[in-house]
Structures are given as structure tokens and as C-alpha cells.
């Protein structure tokens, strides 16, 4: 496959970035999108140029590191797929592909396509955990949890924290991420003692980080590689009000 890539290059957070165009004459349809960038980087290094910086880790769609906006869609055109699991067979010979980093104030570019997502870590630090002493590991099934509730908690817990929801949202809102991290505990007995303070503190931190608000356009749900539903946002709206009223 012959492809033309327009890639965002930026030296660091302080320097202004720009798009550079690269020709890849010998891409394979079996390459993942990240392997295409590896392939391009090898030729850049051979030519004595700086390789393109991008985030990756597990490359099997579960770690949440990869974070590329491909042709205007976070993680690219294939639904429910991280960009590391996106393969070049989704594209056509001769395509022109625009590759950009996540764009959001709370996700400043570190270099090229790598953004700083520690704002997400700070939201988790604000309350996205269970801190109460639960003793030693309990026997399996010692705490009965209904199948429906367990499924809902799991549906939220599959969030890999990649930030595609923020990247896709026209407001750069983090509501889908935060609501999933709130809901994964709100549906389990272990999450109950800290339920109110968790939602209050995580939403407070989300606002302090400078993310936008939710306008219910739901592009976050469409971009989420784990297909986390926006019903968790409604749940968080409800839980946040309950926490504030009883504060």
C-alpha cells in the first residue's frame, strides 16, 4: 500500500507545532496503525531524522496508552477499537491520513503525538479508589452481588483511561471517564462507604483540571474503544446532586 501521512510534529509543550507530510510507499495491510508508524520511524532514523513520538504499551487494546486521532476520529475509523488494534486493511491504497494528538487543554502535548494525561491520574487520586479497611482477601462469593449489578460495575470497570472520550467531545469534557470510574465502585458493596465523597471529590477535581462540561452529544460513547455507555454520566449527575444535597 502507498500512503501519505500528515503527522503533527511538536518539539515540546512550549514550542508551536506543525503538520509534516510523509510518504509511505511500502505499507502492508497487515500492519497495525502503530506498526505503520514504527515502519515510518525506521526510515526516518535511517535518513538521520527525528522519529515521530507516540504513546504505546501493550499493543493489544487493553492498556489505554495509544492515543492518536486518525482522520478526525480518536483511535481511527473502526468502532470499539484502540488505534493499536486498528489495521491498515481498514484503509485504501493511496489514502491520505491525518494523524493528530488528543486535543484538550488538560492534555498538553509533551512531544509530537504524545500528550500528558496526568490530569486523569489526579482525578483518580481525588477519590477513584476504595480506602476503607476490608480485611484480608474474602472467600469467593462471601459477599453476594447480583449478576445485573456485577455486570454494570464491570461495564464501567473496562474503562482503560485512554482519554478518547475527551478527545472526541466537542467540549473536551471528561464526563464519560469520570462517570465510569465513579460507577465501577458505586455498583459494588465495597464502594458504598465512600460513595458520596468519591463522586463529589472526583467531579470537583475534574472541574479544577479545566475539562469542559457535558452537552449530551455522546460522541464520547461513539469514540470509546470499550463502548462505555453514557448512562453512567446520567448516574453521576444523579449521584453528584445527592452527594451535594447531603453534604
Amino acid at each position: 500500500m502507498r500512503l501519505t501521512l500528515e503527522v503533527w510534529r511538536q518539539l515540546d509543550a512550549q514550542t508551536a507545532g506543525m503538520f509534516e507530510t510523509y510518504e509511505v510507499p511500502d505499507a502492508s495491510e497487515h500492519m497495525s496503525f502503530l506498526e505503520l508508524l514504527d515502519h515510518l520511524n525506521e526510515s526516518l532514523v535511517r535518513d538521520g531524522q527525528e522519529p515521530i513520538a507516540f504513546d504505546s504499551d501493550c499493543r493489544e487494546g487493553i492498556c489505554g496508552m495509544c492515543s492518536l486521532v486518525v482522520n478526525g476520529v480518536p483511535h481511527g475509523p473502526q468502532r470499539a477499537t484502540t488505534v493499536c488494534q486498528l489495521h491498515m486493511r481498514e484503509f485504501n491504497d493511496g489514502d491520505r491520513i491525518v494523524v493528530e494528538p488528543w486535543r484538550a487543554g488538560p492534555f498538553p502535548v509533551i512531544r509530537d503525538l504524545v500528550v500528558d494525561r496526568t490530569s486523569f491520574d489526579r482525578i483518580i487520586e481525588a477519590g477513584g479508589y476504595v480506602a476503607v479497611n476490608t480485611g484480608g482477601a474474602p472467600d469467593a462469593n462471601a459477599v453476594p452481588i447480583g449478576k445485573d449489578e456485577a455486570d454494570i460495575a464491570f461495564q464501567a470497570a473496562v474503562c482503560i483511561g485512554c482519554g478518547a472520550c475527551v478527545a472526541a467531545c466537542k467540549n473536551a469534557s471528561a464526563m464519560l471517564f469520570v462517570s465510569a470510574k465513579v460507577a465501577q465502585f458505586a455498583h459494588l458493596p465495597q464502594g458504598q462507604p465512600e460513595r458520596k465523597r468519591r463522586v463529589r471529590d472526583m467531579v470537583g477535581q475534574m472541574d479544577r483540571e479545566g475539562f469542559g462540561g457535558c452537552t449530551n452529544t455522546y460522541d464520547c460513547e461513539g469514540a470509546c474503544p470499550k463502548e462505555i455507555p453514557v448512562r453512567f454520566i446520567a448516574e453521576m449527575n444523579r449521584g453528584f446532586l445527592a452527594a451535594k444535597i447531603t453534604e
Binding site: 491525518v98 493528530e100 467540549n171 469534557s173 469542559g212 462540561g213 452537552t215 461513539g222
Partner: peptide, 29 residues
Amino acid sequence: SLAARNRSARPVGYRMRRTIVSTLSSRTM
């Protein structure tokens, strides 16, 4: 006040942006 905040939450915009599931009415409120 929310719209102003939402705009400032993305200081650098995308060169190419495609909507995924959002409706025109939701984006033009």
C-alpha cells in the same frame, strides 16, 4: 458560561474532526 468554558477547554483545535454519533441539533444548541 458553560459554552465559554467548553471552548477554552480545547485551546488548540483539530485540523480534521469527524463527529461519530452526535446529531446536528446537539451541536448547534
